[in-house]
Design a protein around this nucleic acid. Structure first.
Length: 140
DNA sequence: TCAGTGACTCCCC
DNA sequence: CGGGGAGCCACTG
């Protein structure tokens, strides 16, 4: 039997918590053709080690969702949704946005990495230390 | 109140 | 390069 559901934080018709609301806000802001890793989204919502929880929030969103969750990938630049049957769809969506994948199924983070502009990091009231951590994670 | 869960990461071998 | 395992997090019965 296949696992029926995730048990972590999940979005609802109405965001159930500030964490969920922030995650959706950040993901919604990712531009066409750009991506963020689960860990990066976690930093941007003020929970630097909450990558796993971010995945929990996105769990349940499907092709019908207006939120561009396909732009959230793992740290390797790969797709993490194959296990829940969404991998093929997600990869196709990203390809349609002009993103290329290596034979190993990885995209180039250096090329497609999104850097939230100051107007957004300010709007999100992102603490300086988190902004610094975000860039350090990128090796900049 | 608390153990259980997973679209994550990191570390070690 | 690959597998295993241990933290981490927010949320659920």
């Amino acid at each position: 039997m296949k696992k029926s559901k995730a048990s972590g934080p999940r979005p609802r018709s109405a965001p159930s918590s500030p964490f969920v609301r922030k995650v959706l806000e950040v993901v919604r802001a990712i531009p066409h053709g750009k991506v963020l890793t689960y860990g990066q989204v976690a930093i941007l919502v003020g929970a630097p080690r909450g990558a796993r929880a971010v995945g929990g929030v996105l769990f349940g969103l499907g092709p019908e969702s207006k939120i561009p969750w396909q732009r959230v990938i793992n740290r390797e630049g790969g797709i993490s949704t194959y296990r829940i049957g969404m991998g093929h769809w997600q990869k196709k969506k990203l390809k349609d946005e002009g993103i290329k994948f290596s034979r190993a199924g990885l995209l180039d983070l250096k090329t497609h990495q999104w850097f939230p502009p100051p107007r957004l990091t300010k709007k999100w009231e992102l603490p300086e230390r988190l902004l610094i951590e975000f860039h350090e994670k990128l090796g900049i």
